[in-house]
């Protein structure tokens, strides 16, 4: 080899301090992400092809778990419940946060900080605490909501004990808890809009509704996209309130997918089937993420 002499030189250069430094900065993160994110992701897919439960020995069973999952009514149901939860919370949260942000963002209104702090309050209370508070408020016999309803002439309800109401109540609580965070983001977005735009619109005779439609809403598109993405991701991860408030019931009407994975994996110790469910969740999130980028790219163009 005629350039044999060059090899030691380049090798020395390659491992000099300057080329090593980026790796020193990166390696802790790289190591952790490899071991605790990439490896489990791959392992999860591998396990989904195994029979891996507490009873029988671990065994490769090919697509058997996938066959089961596609025949599993509870799987479809839990996915549907998760969709309902995520998308049912989405529109009201965006709408209320945006309206409140617009209302708060008025020059004549002096209590912006006070109101913002009040609306933000549910964000700082943990989901566990929130679950217990609402569990009590919605207690059919002892909670205060039934008396409140009877004041309006509505008969006593079973709330979380009623399979036609439980999920709606969880959605309601989710909206209640999410408004503050999203409102703060919208408010910051509103404050970033150049005031001269509104003045120009006013001179042209635009009504407040028109200036919202043609200035505020389009200017807030990136904020809305961020808010929507966060809400959908959070919606799909719903677990704490289900575990505390309903245990997936009544009649499995609040059996969301993460709760199902948890039950299969950690109550029944069926890692194989839990992994198939997790792969399914991953695929759904992936499709949503791709769709999101598609729409986002189209809007930016």
């Amino acid at each position: 080899m005629h350039d044999a002499k060059a090899i030691p030189f380049t090798r020395r250069k390659r491992w000099s301090k300057a080329t090593l430094t980026p790796w020193i900065f990166l390696s802790p993160a790289l190591l952790i992400i490899m071991i605790f994110v990439i490896l489990p992701t791959i392992a999860g897919v591998v396990i989904s092809f195994l029979r891996y439960d507490a009873i029988s020995p671990v065994e490769f069973i090919g697509l058997q778990n996938y066959k089961l999952v596609f025949q599993d009514q509870l799987f479809y149901k839990s996915m549907w419940i998760t969709f309902l939860f995520a998308f049912g919370s989405l529109l009201p949260t965006v709408f209320i946060s945006l309206v409140l942000a617009v209302l708060l963002n008025q020059k004549w209104f002096p209590f912006v900080n006070l109101f913002r702090a009040v609306y933000f309050l549910p964000t700082v209370v943990s989901m566990v605490a929130v679950s217990f508070v609402w569990l009590w408020l919605f207690n059919p016999q002892l909670g205060p909501i039934n008396p409140l309803l009877s004041a309006f002439g509505i008969s006593a309800q079973q709330f979380l004990g009623d399979s036609s109401q439980a999920l709606a109540i969880l959605i309601l609580i989710n909206i209640w808890k999410s408004i503050g965070f999203n409102l703060v983001i919208y408010l910051a977005g509103l404050q970033g809009i150049d005031n001269s735009l509104y003045e120009a619109a006013r001179i042209d005779g635009a009504s407040p509704l028109q200036s919202f439609r043609f200035i505020t809403w389009p200017m807030l598109t990136p904020v809305t996209f961020f808010v929507v993405a966060m809400l959908i991701i959070n919606g799909f991860q719903v677990f704490d309130q289900i575990n505390i408030m309903t245990g997936g019931g009544p009649a499995r009407s609040t059996y969301a997918i993460v709760f199902y994975i948890y039950q299969k994996g950690f109550s029944e110790t069926n890692f194989g089937y839990a992994s198939v469910l997790a792969v399914m969740l991953f695929i759904v999130i992936l499709v949503l993420t791709l769709a999101y980028h598609r729409i986002n790219a189209r809007l930016e163009r």
């Binding site: 994975i261 948890y262 792969v279 991953f282 999130i285 993420t289």
Partner: peptide, 10 residues
């Protein structure tokens, strides 16, 4: 795009 819940078992 990988939520923790999807990899919590492994």
């Amino acid at each position: 795009a990988i939520p923790f819940e999807a990899i919590m078992v492994p």
